[in-house]
Computed example of a mutant assay.
Amino acid sequence: MDTAPLPAPGPLTYRDATPDDVKPLVDLIESAYRGESARASWTSEAGLLEGQRTDVRGVLEVIEAEGSRLLMVETGGELVACCQLEHRGPAAYFGMFAVDPRAQGGGLGKRVLAEAERRARADWGVGEMHMTVIIQRTDLIAWYERRGYRRTGQLLPFPYGDERYGLPQIDDLAFELLVKPLDD
């Protein structure tokens, strides 16, 4: 990921990713969660996971899956954030959320999350947004709670043994389902 300063903040543009966008998306996601650029970021999973966060195949699967989209967020022509939206009946799933570490802390994540919620409601008519967060990520869970998400207590196992999701550094990783009602 580039370490040069981002362009001056301007209007954000949102668009659905295409297969041509896979490489920059992988770079963005990796920079937000893994490696040196992520270590200075509050989204870093250092200490919990090493290795990759995603790969070309994983990003391409999200882009090409039925009922799924990978939303790209750009400013000044530069990719600054992304998120996955997947239609799951009465709910939408929110995942693969990444904000360029150079753009974190200024409210960009809040804006992207709000736009994702708006699009899920408008495009699919869903009443809830669902997501899963590693339970050890207490700061991140608290951030989502401040945005109206609630913890459900429903835990899902971490995919130990599948290196596509990283190399666990501790033995008790699990995901918790977070849910937010999407009001009209």
Score class of each variant (00 low, 15 high):
Leu12Gln: 08
Ala65Cys: 01
Val26Cys: 10
Ala114Ile: 06
Pro101Met: 05
Gln84Phe: 00
Gln104Phe: 05
Leu85Gln: 14
Leu49Ser: 07
Arg69Leu: 13
Ala114Phe: 07
Gly148Lys: 04
Asp172Glu: 08
Val62Pro: 02
Asp21Ala: 13
Gly76Trp: 04
Pro24Lys: 09
Lys180Ala: 08
Pro5Val: 04
Ala92His: 01
Met129Asp: 08
Lys110Glu: 15
Leu12Tyr: 09
Gly76Ala: 08
Pro159Ala: 02
Leu60Asn: 09
Met129Pro: 07
Tyr14Ser: 09
Val133Asp: 05
Ala114His: 13
Arg121Thr: 11
Gly161Lys: 01
Pro181Trp: 02
Glu64Tyr: 01
Ile135Ala: 13
Ala174Met: 02
Gln169Lys: 13
Thr75Leu: 01
Tyr165Met: 01
Asp20Val: 06
Asp100Glu: 05
Leu6Thr: 03
Arg119His: 10
Ser37Met: 14
Asp27Trp: 05
Val56Thr: 14
Arg53Asp: 00
Tyr165Cys: 00
Leu6Pro: 02
Gly105Asp: 03
Gln104Glu: 13
Ala32Cys: 11
Tyr93Asn: 04
Gly148Pro: 12
Thr43Glu: 07
Asp16Tyr: 05
Leu60Ala: 15
Val59Trp: 03
Pro157Gln: 02
Phe175Ser: 00
Glu117Leu: 11
Arg102Met: 02
Val126Ser: 09
Leu60Glu: 12
Leu28Ser: 10
Tyr14Gly: 09
Ser41Pro: 00
Pro11Gln: 09
Trp42Lys: 09
Asp123Val: 01
Arg15Ala: 15
Ala4Gln: 14
Ile63Ser: 09
Gln84Trp: 04
Trp143Asn: 05
Ile135Asn: 14
Val56Pro: 07
Leu71His: 03
Asp172Gln: 04
Thr13Ile: 14
Trp124His: 14
Glu45Tyr: 11
Arg121Met: 04
Pro168Met: 04
Leu167Gln: 15
Arg111Cys: 02
Met129Leu: 15
Tyr149Val: 07
Gly106Tyr: 03
Asp16Trp: 05
Asp55Thr: 03
Gly77Arg: 11
Arg121Gln: 11
Gln169His: 02
Val73Thr: 13
Glu74Pro: 08
Ala114Arg: 15
Asp55Trp: 02
Ala32Ser: 12
Pro159Gly: 03
Phe97Gly: 09
Pro157Trp: 00
Gln136Met: 01
Ala40Glu: 14
Ala120Gln: 06
Gly76Lys: 08
Leu108Glu: 07
Val56Gly: 11
Gly161Trp: 01
Glu128Lys: 10
Arg39Leu: 15
Asp171Cys: 03
Asp183Arg: 10
Leu49Thr: 07
Val22Pro: 06
Gly67Lys: 05
Val99Asn: 06
Leu140Ser: 14
Ala120Met: 06
Gly89Met: 02
Val99Thr: 15
Asp27Gly: 12
Asp2Glu: 15
Val59Arg: 09
Glu115Ser: 10
Val62Leu: 14
Glu128Arg: 15
Phe97Arg: 05
Leu155Asn: 01
Glu115Asn: 10
Ile29Lys: 08
Pro90Leu: 00
Arg118Asp: 10
Pro90Met: 00
Arg121His: 12
Glu128Pro: 01
Arg102Val: 03
Glu86Phe: 02
Gly148Cys: 07
Arg39Val: 10
Val59Thr: 12
Arg150Val: 13
Gly10Glu: 13
Glu176Phe: 00
Ala92Tyr: 00
Gln136Tyr: 01
Ala38Ile: 06
Val26Asn: 10
Gly153Phe: 03
Phe175Cys: 00
Arg151Glu: 07
Asp162His: 03
